[in-house]
């Protein structure tokens, strides 16, 4: 029962990964790609780790640390990349 649950969680996480990563290919702006990437990638990764947590509860401390790290760092990272790339977008618009 728990096995099925953990496997289905991992499969859902991988679906999230594909959903977040597929918009990377294509001619959209950086911020659009960043949005889909940061939301769907982080959620997918957290779901996968949750599935692993159900599968092997003995490593719970490590996996919990990984979840917390993902939640905090990926959010901050999304903000930092957006902040750093926005300058260039404005400059390009001015030139064009």
């Amino acid at each position: 029962m728990i096995d099925i649950l953990s496997y289905s969680l991992m499969v859902i996480g991988i679906i999230f990964w594909f959903w977040g990563t597929l918009p990377l290919i294509g001619e959209r702006s950086v911020l659009f790609k960043l949005h889909s990437l940061s939301v769907a990638d982080t959620l997918g990764s957290m779901t996968i780790i949750l599935g692993l947590l159900l599968k092997i509860p003995s490593e719970w401390s490590l996996l919990l640390l990984a979840i917390i790290t993902l939640a905090i760092w990926n959010t901050v990272l999304g903000y930092v990349i957006a902040y750093c790339s926005i300058d260039e977008e404005i400059k390009n618009k001015k030139i064009n």
Binding site: D41, S45, E88
Partner: peptide
């Protein structure tokens, strides 16, 4: 910046 985004995605995925 698109390359940086791809790198961010790869870094997360490899560690997972």
């Amino acid at each position: 910046w698109q390359k940086m985004l791809a790198f961010a995605s790869i870094a997360t995925k490899t560690s997972i």
